[in-house]
Simulated scan of single mutants.
Amino acid sequence: MELKGIHHVSAITANAPGNFEFYTKVLGLRLIKKTVNQDDISVYHLFYGDVKGNPGTELTFFEIPNAGQNRDGNESISAISLRVPNDAALEYWKNRFEEFNVEHEPIAERAGRSTLAFRDFEGQRLILVSDEHDEGVPGGIPWDRSPVPAEQGIVGLGPVKLTVSNAEPTALVLTELLGFRRKGTYPSAAAGQPDIQVFETGQGGTGTEIHLEERHDLPKERLGRGGMHHVAFRVDNEEELKQWIERVRKFKFPNSGFVDRFYFRSLYFREPNGILFELATDGPGFDTDEDIMHLGESLALPPFLESKRAQIEAMLKPLDTKQQSSASDF
């Protein structure tokens, strides 16, 4: 039993059309699945990733149209990293962000890597991280119809940052329950705050890391648009997931038990600071119910929701995703 790395991260948007435009046309990701939140079928759940949505490349969004603005703070997933091939790619992205008026910071070093922090149109906290010296779990394969050239393209999820008021209980869950290894520390950008701790799992590297920040100067986060809902970690298969379920129960964490999401199988629980963790299997995958050439073009529903299709489509505002971004659009 060993977690393989980051599986996906799910965030909140209040604007599905704007979200689709930003993540496909500016960031060049592929929309690999347009479906609904299985726990609230009245709202979209959009999945972005590499060419086929390989595990470790998936950034997903629940659309909650009336969501208020996220109030950043403690007990939160406070930043998502996206991997790019090398340091030179960061210069490309810096210029691209200036072209598209994307709010961004200067290129800076974090945990020994070159990075570029930016925000999307709703204030989502994102960081591009260079894989120039990475020797860990491989990234994904950029989509060849992306408006971003493959040599600069996003290849997956990088380190996920958690910000909490007391780091020790979360660190113990990462190491004692989930089997993460302590890798090191780096200075906080906030004056007078403890160093940020780095944990890794599996093969290690950018696609497997949690960066744990303890802050004594922040209120508790209020989740809204521009905020992050949960982080999921990679489990190899369903049989191993069942072993993880038993392990989480032995540690006496309230949990969801086995959940069939159709595209993967899951377990959910909250660590002591209240951040929602998910363990998710690598398969079956997003091409289970759609041709690989047409992922994300139409509303996909798992079989257990198909009988409600008419009801679901009546609740959703139309979202045209058939013409995804291509280089010729620019």
Rank of each mutant, 00 (worst) to 15 (best):
E2V: 06
L3G: 00
K4P: 00
I6K: 00
T13N: 08
A14I: 00
A16P: 01
F20C: 08
E21M: 09
F22S: 07
Y23A: 11
V26D: 00
L27N: 01
G28N: 08
R30V: 03
R30C: 07
N37E: 05
Q38R: 07
I41G: 03
S42V: 00
L46W: 08
F47M: 09
F47T: 08
F47A: 14
Y48F: 15
G56T: 04
F61W: 06
F62I: 02
N66Y: 02
A67V: 05
Q69L: 01
N70H: 04
I77R: 01
I80G: 00
R83D: 02
L90S: 03
L90W: 00
E91S: 13
R96L: 12
V102H: 05
P106E: 07
P106K: 04
A108I: 14
A111Q: 10
S114T: 04
D120Y: 01
D120I: 04
F121N: 14
F121I: 12
E122P: 12
E122A: 02
I127N: 12
S130D: 07
S130F: 14
D131N: 06
E132L: 08
D134F: 11
D134L: 10
G136V: 07
V137M: 12
P138V: 13
G140R: 04
G140V: 05
D144T: 13
D144Y: 12
A150S: 15
Q152W: 12
Q152A: 12
I154H: 04
V155L: 14
T163S: 15
S165M: 14
N166L: 14
P169N: 06
P169T: 11
L177S: 08
L177K: 08
K183W: 03
A189K: 13
V198F: 00
G204K: 10
G205L: 07
G205S: 05
G207D: 02
H216M: 10
R222S: 13
R222E: 07
L223H: 02
L223G: 03
M228D: 05
H230K: 02
R234T: 11
L241K: 06
L241I: 13
W244D: 08
W244S: 10
E246A: 15
R247Y: 07
F253W: 00
P254A: 14
N255G: 05
F258R: 02
R261S: 09
Y263L: 02
S266I: 05
L267Q: 08
G274D: 10
A280C: 11
D282T: 12
D282W: 13
P284W: 08
F286G: 11
D287C: 14
D291P: 13
H294W: 11
G296S: 07
L301A: 14
K308H: 15
R309C: 13
I312E: 03
L319V: 07
Q324K: 03
S326E: 09
D329M: 14
